Amino acid sequence: MTFDAARALRLAHETFEIEAAAVLGLKARTGEAFGRAVRMMLDVRGRVVVMGMGKSGHIGRKVAATLASTGTPAMFVHPAEASHGDLGMIKPVDLVLAISNGGESEEITVILPVLKRLGVPMIAMTGSAASTLALHADVALDSGVEKEACPLNLAPTASTTAQLAMGDALAVALLDARGFRTEDFARSHPGGALGRKLLTHLSDVMRAGDAIPRVGPDTPFTALMREMSAKGLGASAIVDDDNRVLGIFTDGDLRRLVEKGVDLRAVTAREVMFPQPRTIRDDALAVEAAELMEKHRITSVLVVDAQGRLCGAVNSNDLMRAKVI
């Protein structure tokens, strides 16, 4: 068989157009039933149990994962396995979201009477309003499409795209209704980049105690340099007797003094420090320190407590090690 690159590209473009039309077509057919479905999912005391066979099952797994990660407890139960014992996972306090384009998947229809006897409410996502699934459901969402993107109009393509979009619409409406916030999302994704940014506080990554480079204002320059070298921050705080920050001295300040030809043997920390440096509170998020450094083009920042006393220090390397940046 000869490969025709031009034909492949044309089919790709047609696929995009057909699937985009399938998703946009949902808008005109999505009405009050959608609101009732969201209300039912909000009110459920247990979990949203998502079901689907074949390609609809793959979509169902993704929908369940999206719901769970955005504040709606959900799980996927394979309908074929449900007939062989997994129905025990479903309780009367749960709600079933069944996905089937034709609405006649035997593995789903065979368990509909059992779910009814259990008193489990059901939402159907189907392309056929007259199907067995739609007629048994408390609410039916129309996810039908005019045609599949498959040239044979057989392989589930546009229909699964529409199901996925409808599932995402449910998740978005639910997270908004629940007042789900960025911080809530982060708690569901502690291992991801967003989770690290929103759950990592400065107190988790900053240098504290004896690891903080600090000297008094009358400290000779040579002692200041020894403190900087020993602590490895690339900077040192200059503090008063009450541990309040007077200034900071950095590697960059040292380079500028050398370029000016200043006699460093005769100066004190007070004379070379940058006064009133930018500081950040110890209860701030680590990502806030990263944003502060980026905004002001600095590589380290001093951390102070609620009383304004020095309690920590952090540089860009510390944040990189914590995978905040």
Rank of each mutant, 00 (worst) to 15 (best):
I59C: 08
R61C: 07
R36E: 14
T30G: 04
H58W: 11
F76R: 01
M53N: 12
T72P: 10
G52S: 14
A33C: 05
M89G: 04
K27W: 03
L97T: 04
A80C: 13
M53F: 10
V96A: 09
V93H: 12
L97Y: 12
S83P: 04
G88D: 10
G52D: 10
A68K: 11
V38E: 01
A80L: 07
H84A: 08
I90M: 06
K91Y: 10
F34H: 02
T30V: 02
I99V: 13
R47G: 00
M41Q: 01
R29H: 12
D43T: 08
M51A: 04
E32W: 02
H78V: 05
R61K: 15
V44F: 00
M89V: 12
L42H: 08
G52L: 14
K55A: 10
K91H: 07
K27P: 02
R45T: 03
M53I: 15
H78A: 11
T70M: 12
K62E: 15
L67F: 14
H84T: 12
M51G: 07
K55T: 15
V44T: 13
H84C: 08
G46Y: 00
A82S: 14
S83K: 09
V77F: 02
G60E: 07
R61D: 05
R47N: 06
V49M: 12
G85L: 10
K27M: 10
A37H: 01
A65I: 10
T70V: 13
G35S: 03
R39F: 05
S56Y: 10
G71V: 01
T72E: 00
R45Y: 03
V63T: 11
P73G: 13
M89H: 09
R47C: 11
P92D: 09
A65H: 13
T66S: 09
P73I: 05
K62S: 12
R36L: 12
P73H: 06
P92Q: 11
M75Y: 04
T30E: 02
D94M: 15
